[in-house]
């Protein structure tokens, strides 16, 4: 269950980026296969880490990035769910490259909501810090 530690770190990062008063609707994370994250456990962990915080109810969207593979014989590169795929040229000498990504890509926020945090909830920090990076969607 390293998913729980990851969820807690994620909550910390999101808090750094969401200005006070913003309601965070969703959090978007890309995860490579080397992180060995189970999507079901990750969702549960996210629920556990956000319960009783201002992020209770915030959706976690996980995008799983497949393996990037490269053939040592013919040099072909492709992506696959399975690191041990042989190449179409018949070679089994295939190198996995990368795969250890674990990135908070973006958050979706609603600035108009008049949400008031529960009194005991941890407050957002660094208000305004992220505002310059906001893009309308």
């Amino acid at each position: 269950m390293h998913e729980l530690s990851i969820a807690r770190s994620l909550v910390g990062l999101v808090r750094d980026h969401a200005a006070e008063g913003m309601v965070v609707k969703s959090v978007h994370v890309r995860v490579g296969p080397l992180q060995a994250i189970d999507p079901g456990s990750m969702q549960l962990a996210w629920r556990a880490a956000t319960d009783d915080t201002v992020f209770e109810g915030t959706q976690l969207s996980l995008v799983r990035v497949p393996w990037e593979l490269r053939c040592r014989e013919c040099g072909r590169g492709w992506s696959s769910e399975n690191w041990s795929d042989p190449c179409t040229c018949g070679s089994c000498r295939v190198d996995p490259v990368g795969g250890d990504e674990l990135t908070l890509v973006s958050i979706e926020v609603d600035e108009t909501s008049t949400y008031s945090a529960p009194a005991d909830a941890p407050r957002s920090v660094k208000p305004g810090q992220a505002s310059k990076e906001i893009h309308r969607v």
């Binding site: 990851i6 770190s9 994620l10 990062l13 980026h17 969401a18 609707k25 994370v29 674990l102 990135t103 908070l104 890509v105 973006s106 958050i107 979706e108 926020v109 609603d110 600035e111 992220a130 990076e133 906001i134 893009h135 309308r136 969607v137």
Partner: peptide, 12 residues
């Protein structure tokens, strides 16, 4: 609704 791009390692 707006999107805030972040692109940061979760275990930073």
């Amino acid at each position: 609704m707006s999107e805030i791009r972040i692109v940061q390692n979760v275990l930073k």
